[in-house]
């Protein structure tokens, strides 16, 4: 009887302890990595390589996502708003939802799939083939060499990517608005920019920077702590993508709440 009662409790307890351990480990890892960003030596070459990988090579994926999202958004809001004779507001609805919400979130989810996975796989392989240990024996701190440049690159690259995504998304909406829904081009663009505020764009870019940090952090942490050969690296890759995707959506709520309260 007692066992039946205690068993679920024990399971919950174990799970809670496990979650705390992981959270603590990630937090310490992040702190250490950030501390390396302010102490020399700095690996500019590695920063640059990671930056190009994130900002440049993710561009096609992010651009396509943004354009289609803008197009869909324009169509869907037309369907809804036509019922209230409020078609004229479509341009503002499209731009505000894109810039505040969909741009950062969708771009980050796409980048999480690409970059989070590639960081985890690369660093995980280095772990299981002793390359990380080798770094230590070659007078190089692996956190400084592998983790810090990637974190910095992601934090800088994500807002730039999202800025591009915002512009392309608006263009997608404009395309549908003028070609399909019968808006006059100039009028559509005017109402796009009329109601757009600096805060809308800014909050989206802050989100992007935070999501970039999360993606790089989960990718590198999962890779760094992977164990047990190819299978371990595969597991690390999956965990990195799943964890960063969930964290992006959860943090998106938190950040929206913070900006909303201001």
């Amino acid at each position: 009887m007692a066992a039946i009662l205690l068993d679920p409790l024990a399971t919950i307890g174990r799970a809670t302890l496990g979650a705390c351990r992981v959270t603590g480990s990630v937090a310490l890892f992040a702190l250490e990595a950030v501390s390396h960003l302010i102490r020399p030596p700095f690996y500019l070459r590695l920063f640059w390589r990671a930056f190009i990988e994130i900002a440049w090579f993710s561009l096609p994926v992010v651009a396509l996502t943004a354009v289609f999202t803008g197009m869909v958004l324009a169509l869907q809001s037309y369907t809804g708003f036509a019922r209230f004779n409020a078609q004229s507001t479509i341009a503002s609805v499209v731009v505000i939802s894109l810039v505040r919400e969909l741009g950062p979130v969708l771009a980050s989810l796409m980048v999480a799939g690409r970059i989070g996975a590639s960081f985890a796989a690369e660093i995980g392989t280095m772990r299981v083939t002793d390359q990380i240990d080798a770094l230590t024996t070659l007078s190089t701190n692996p956190m400084k060499y592998l983790v810090a440049p990637r974190l910095l690159a992601a934090v800088i690259a994500m807002p730039l990517l999202v800025l591009v995504a915002d512009i392309l998304g608006v263009m997608g909406g404009w395309l549908i608005g003028t070609l399909k829904l019968g808006f006059v081009s100039a009028a559509y663009l005017k109402s796009t920019f009329d109601y757009l505020q600096f805060d809308d764009v800014f909050s989206g870019l802050v989100k992007a920077a935070v999501f970039g940090f999360v993606i790089a952090l989960m990718g590198t942490w999962c890779g760094y702590n992977s164990r047990g050969g190819a299978q371990g690296v595969g597991g690390a890759t999956t965990s990195a993508v799943v964890a960063s995707s969930i964290l992006i959506l959860a943090l998106d709520y938190v950040l929206t709440e913070i900006f909303f309260a201001r």
Partner: peptide, 26 residues
């Protein structure tokens, strides 16, 4: 650690770097 060298059992070469950079890494 600066005064210690180690040859790993499986080599553990950095596959993102060319051989010359591996050799002169330290």
């Amino acid at each position: 650690g600066d005064r210690i060298g180690m040859l790993f059992q499986n080599g553990a070469l950095f596959d993102s770097l060319p051989v010359w950079e591996n050799v002169c890494f330290k």
